[in-house]
Design a binder for these strands. Structure first.
Length: 487
RNA sequence: GGCGCCGUACCCAAGUGGCUAAGGGAGAGGUCUGCAAAACCUCGAUUCGGCGGUUCGAAUCCGCCCGGCGCCUCCA
């Protein structure tokens, strides 16, 4: 079954055909590192993480590039105002390079915690000044840009296709323009490729036009084409960046190379709070670090993947609590599977109680339909229901079959969606863990004796105290007990 | 004002022309249990914001209306 992707450029789902067979070249706009990442970032990068993981499952060799914007992103309207990183640096009374470094690490810390695989290349804008200058020079040579007083602007009227991604026309944009026009611009919608550094500006570089710094949009064109080629497969990012950021990237890149820039544009929708967009400038954001105080990383990941990447999702603690319970249900099922594998055998004349292959096909079909993670998750729940029924039925259970089911969970729940805890199989990782298990086992056995003697007060006390330590005891009908450590 | 999206059970959330409208949470009843937890079984939208229209057939297409949101200025 073919993979189809919703392409913002055509507003249709299209079959994915890679430019180079067997390979996917993909670029996703990374963060501007002037603050701790929030749940909105989590949605974007978890969504594209699932996309990358799915391509890898399908056998593609993925080259995933995600930039770090550490210069050039201005605070206000188009090409006015202050550099966001310099502003933050002034507020915190440190230099801008420290700000960029600090929040870059903060970003990766949070992504690591959420199980987001690192990109293959994480280029920094400040590390690619030369490439950006070269691109600006090329645009000047080709007549798509003009220099005014040490700054260089892109002449959007020279690029007739400007607006093709976001479905806008220049006249409409001009009419709706709400910001004061920079007098250096020939046309209100022209945008900065290079900005002259005003006195006191710290992050600046020499250029053919004097000391200055690159505009925001140019970095993505320069870096994506450097690492992925002048035409590449997929460019992703938040929907709010479709215009103007991605529109400008297209204009710059296609004007410079004369070739199509990107084949498939993918945009994730946003996270809302009480129905309103979560955004840095709105101040209604919840940082990932804050969220992790209340919810586990897997819960956040599960919550994000439970809605489609192109749909908005409303963040609330209640919603996260519900997600946590749902995810726990899934985990219980997998834990039960590992427990059952411990005493399963070969069953003669075994008839499978359900078809694993059918589940696999369903899962693949859902993911191939524009990465429909909510439906893929529903498939996991359906499998868990079937598996629970089988395991709860009188044994013995067929080990090869259970192993196949395990393979399913490992492949799809773990490798593709990243939703299983590392220790889900409860394999002891160290002697100490073994010792803990033996001690708990001993305690549980003693409690079993107490229960036989109907010393309920004492046995309940042991159960409650162990629960306080995170060890949950579950008594079975036949008088034996199971236990597990809750993370 | 321009462009675009959404409105599905108590909550979250799939489904975009045709089998019984996924899945999760919460809830109710049941099995099991000394109790509890977990697990399992059963129940829950004759209906998809409203009103019209197209069609043999629509939650799905078209029109209007109501409500919410996004982009058009920085934001994943």
């Amino acid at each position: 079954m073919a993979l189809v992707i919703y392409n913002t450029l055509t507003r249709k789902k299209e079959e994915f055909v890679p430019l180079h067979p067997g390979r996917v070249h993909m670029y996703v706009c990374g963060p501007t590192v002037y603050g701790d990442p929030h749940i909105g970032h989590a949605k974007s990068y978890i969504s594209f993480d699932a996309v990358v993981r799915w391509f890898r499952y399908l056998g593609y060799r993925v080259k995933y590039v995600q930039n770090i914007t550490d210069v050039g992103h201005l605070t206000d309207d188009a090409d006015q105002g202050e550099d966001k990183i310099e502003k933050k640096a002034r507020e915190e009374k440190v230099d801008p390079w420290e700000i960029a470094q600090h929040y870059t690490w903060s970003y990766f810390d949070d992504m690591d915690a959420l199980g987001v695989l690192r990109p293959n290349i994480s280029p920094h804008a400040t590390g690619h000044i030369i490439e950006q200058i070269e691109l600006v020079k090329k645009l000047l040579e080709k007549g798509f840009a003009y220099e005014v007083n040490g700054s260089v602007y892109y002449d959007v009227r020279k690029f007739p296709e400007y607006g093709k991604l976001s479905g806008r026309k220049l006249e409409e944009l001009e009419a709706g323009a709400r910001v004061e026009v920079n007098p250096e611009k020939r046309f209100p919608l022209d945008f900065a490729l290079w900005k002259k550094a005003e006195p006191g500006h710290i992050m600046k570089w020499p250029s053919p036009w004097g000391e200055g710094y690159p505009g925001w949009h140019i970095e993505c064109s320069a870096m994506s084409m450097k690492y992925l080629g002048e035409t590449f497969d997929i460019h992703g990012g938040g929907i709010e960046n479709a215009f103007p950021h991605h529109e400008c990237e297209i204009a710059q890149s296609e004007a410079a190379t004369g070739k199509p820039f990107v084949r498939y544009w993918m945009h994730n929708n946003m996270v809302t709070v009480n129905g309103t967009k979560m955004g840095k400038s709105l101040g209604n954001f919840v940082t990932i670090k804050d969220a992790l105080q209340k919810h586990s990383p897997l819960t956040i990941r599960f919550f994000i993947l439970s809605s489609h990447y192109r749909s908005p999702v409303d963040y609330s603690d209640q919603a996260l609590d519900a997600a946590e319970k749902g995810l726990e249900r899934l985990h219980n099922s997998v834990r039960q599977l590992y427990r059952a594998m411990g005493h399963a055998t070969e069953v003669a004349n075994f008839t499978p109680p359900f078809s694993i292959d059918a589940f696999k096909q369903r899962f693949e079909a859902e993911m191939n339909d524009d990465f429909n993670t909510p439906k893929a998750i529903a498939v996991l729940f359906d499998l868990s229901r079937e598996l629970n029924k089988y395991i709860n039925a009188p044994g013995p259970h067929h080990l090869p079959f259970l192993k196949e089911v395990e393979g399913f969970y490992q492949t799809f729940a773990n490798e593709v969606l990243g939703l299983l805890p590392k220790d889900i199989s409860r394999e002891p990782t160290a002697e100490t863990q073994e010792l803990v298990e033996k001690l708990v086992q001993l305690t549980v056995e003693v409690r079993g004796e107490l229960r036989k003697q109907k010393l309920w007060n004492l046995s309940d006390k042991i159960r409650d105290e162990l629960a306080q330590l995170g060890i949950i005891i579950k008594d079975r009908p036949d008088g034996s007990s199971e236990w597990e450590i809750k993370g």
